[in-house]
Design a protein around this nucleic acid. Structure first.
Lengths: 159, 159
DNA sequence: ACAAATTGGACCGAATTGGTCCGCTATAGG
DNA sequence: CCTATAGCGGACCAATTCGGTCCAATTTGT
């Protein structure tokens, strides 16, 4: 089973990309190029992030996006929630109504606890932490090259 | 966003139902009736649980299912994994290969930590705990009222 | 031998998701 | 003033996945 949707996953990547250098005003296409994700999708994600108030946008010819807040003040749960909606473990924690009909469940109270555990784990990590250990391109330096990316894409997975 | 699939959700309910009285050998139909879930689906779930070794099955005319182990020794993560497969936060934590192509991700190492948090939260709760506080009320007696459920479904989400 | 069960798999229909595209508005520069 | 650029807000399509059902086979008790 996979917990967060691909869109949410991408959303974090996109947000992290913006967090990499907070000053720069990046266009959707620029972010798409940097992240190697399809432009249209990135645009969609940025829209969602903007609507959630996580990134600020400026329109027009010299427009673009940038983080609205300090990367240290944006948690992953916010990013995920901006795209996938609020986190709930089961259907009934999101839509309460239809629970009445299908199930009998003494189990439900426990879900809330687990729910919190997940939410907390996600809330405990800030965007800043996602970018720092690998130093994206801190001071005015070059962006990430696709080549470099391949190398660091390897590990992950197992703790 | 919803973390566990409906099937997994149901799976926990079914398992909890069996845990409610460990001695009894329950047929798939009996469990379906008790849980108010469609029979075919329950049968499917029980099959999956059996294959994972969580419940033992006996075939034939007086057959049925029962828990293979003590309810205190079965964690929710096992039940969920039996149905939805292993828990992973992102695609790349499950299928590593396609990660190399799509994304650049300095972010990935962090996923593992969150992954663990979720897994631990799920592993920390045993089937036994799911059944005790609310004592199933096997035949005849009242189910849970939607009203009560509403109260406990609220929380979670915000940090 | 028959009936009641699980087993394993195939199968379909539908809901959700990922992704694209459109027309619109706003801004900067010539 | 006009044009090019870029975000905005949808609608929209395509496809994968998911929930659910069904069937043939096997096993076992009466």
């Amino acid at each position: 089973m996979i917990i967060l949707s691909r869109l949410a996953d991408y959303g974090v990547i996109v947000a992290t990309c913006l967090a990499a250098d907070r000053e720069r005003q990046a266009t959707a296409s620029a972010v798409a190029a940097a992240t190697q994700l399809p432009r249209a999708t990135v645009a969609k994600l940025l829209k969602a992030l903007a609507r959630a108030g996580l990134v600020s946008s400026t329109r027009g010819v010299a427009g673009g996006y940038r983080l609205a807040r300090d990367p240290a003040a944006i948690s992953l749960s916010e990013v995920v929630a901006a795209i996938d909606g609020n986190i709930g473990l089961t259907q009934c924690s999101v839509h309460v109504e239809d629970c009445a009909r299908t199930n009998y469940c003494p189990t439900r109270p426990h879900w809330a606890a687990i729910n919190n555990a997940v939410a907390k784990a996600l809330a405990a990590i800030a965007l800043e932490e996602m970018v720092t250990p690998y130093t994206f391109a801190p001071p005015g330096k070059g962006r990430f090259t696709p080549a470099r990316r391949e190398k660091i894409a390897e590990p992950g997975v197992t703790p």
